[in-house]
């Protein structure tokens, strides 16, 4: 029982990171109507990008985040026309073809990573890795490691920036218009292709940055991709596809599930629980916990 507050706090800190992944993922789905199977691989590649950038420069990894973002946004940007080509055109089932395409990308990235980065589990050392805050109240005590707190702050900052971008800029207006009605937005002068390319670039960049954070808080390996793809799907499906307001609750739930299995149960069963819950939610309410998805 004395571990309960610890499990909750750990879960919420971890969940904050998943919020970021899920928001970027939802954005791409809303604008481009593609479910990106490669999301976990972007996180993995980003984590390694951060790792090697740190090895090279020896700068505090948190300060490297913008660099990681720029590099990966530049990688993601030229991919969008390919996805656009797959989704339009005379193919029978564009949505499935988009899925197959990103799936192919994810296999490729995983293979590349295993070739060049090996199979070992690594972690990104940060100045914040060692420090922690300790709170005690009666019999209950909570330890918050500063690196996890950094993750929470990062999540808040990115959410704030995205919120500003979407609600207060012309670009964001265009994005929201595209998500609502692509044809009408096009008639109003929103450049579909360019906006989609920017959205995809931002999404890849954010996923990669989040990968660096995950590398700092937990660990990174060339095989981590599919797990994080699962987590992204989990959060997005539970929240309801395209329903951003549902994301935090779903993300915190995932974080708490993970920390509870780690502290109270066998962590080997975490994935099993996540898959079973994801499957059950899809069956019971495909539109998410709140029934507000697309």
């Amino acid at each position: 029982m004395e571990l309960l507050p610890q499990a909750l706090v750990d879960g919420i800190m971890l969940g904050a990171i998943y919020i970021i992944i899920a928001i970027a993922f939802s954005l791409v789905y809303g604008v481009m109507h593609v479910i990106d199977f490669a999301v976990g691989e972007w996180i993995m590649l980003g984590a390694f990008g951060g790792y090697y950038l740190f090895q090279w420069t020896r700068i505090e990894p948190l300060l490297l985040l913008p660099a990681v973002f720029v590099v990966f946004a530049a990688i993601g940007y030229p991919l969008q026309p390919l996805i656009h080509r797959v989704l339009s055109g005379r193919r029978g089932n564009p949505l499935l073809m988009g899925l197959v395409f990103t799936f192919g990308l994810s296999l490729m990235f995983r293979g590349l990573a295993q070739t060049f980065f090996g199979f070992y589990s690594l972690s990104i050392p940060s100045r914040f890795s060692n420090g922690s805050f300790f709170f005690q109240n009666g019999g209950l005590s909570v330890t918050i490691s500063s690196v996890r707190l950094t993750g929470l702050v990062y999540a808040l900052v990115i959410t704030g920036i995205l919120n500003y971008l979407l609600k207060h800029t012309d670009f964001g207006l265009g994005v929201r218009a595209l998500a609502q009605n692509r044809d009408a937005a096009g008639l109003m002068g929103v450049n579909n292709k360019r906006t989609s390319a920017y959205v995809y670039a931002i999404y890849v960049g954010i996923s990669a940055m989040t990968g660096v954070l995950i590398g700092m808080i937990l660990s990174l390996s060339a095989k981590m991709g599919p797990d994080y793809t699962t987590f992204a799907f989990f959060v997005v499906v539970l929240a309801g596809m395209g329903y951003l307001a549902g994301v935090p609750a779903a993300a915190f739930l995932l974080g708490i599930i993970q920390s509870f299995f780690l502290i109270y149960l066998d962590p080997g069963y975490t994935l099993l629980a996540v898959f079973v819950l994801l499957y059950t939610i899809l069956l019971v309410s495909p539109r998410g916990l709140f029934g507000k998805g697309v």
Partner: peptide, 22 residues
């Protein structure tokens, strides 16, 4: 010796055939 290369090629073939060979 390069068994993981296979994954790369497999993924590349899927992605490319979706784009070029519908």
């Amino acid at each position: 010796d390069y068994e993981v290369l296979y994954l790369i090629i497999l993924g590349g073939v899927i992605a490319a055939s979706v784009v070029f060979l519908p």
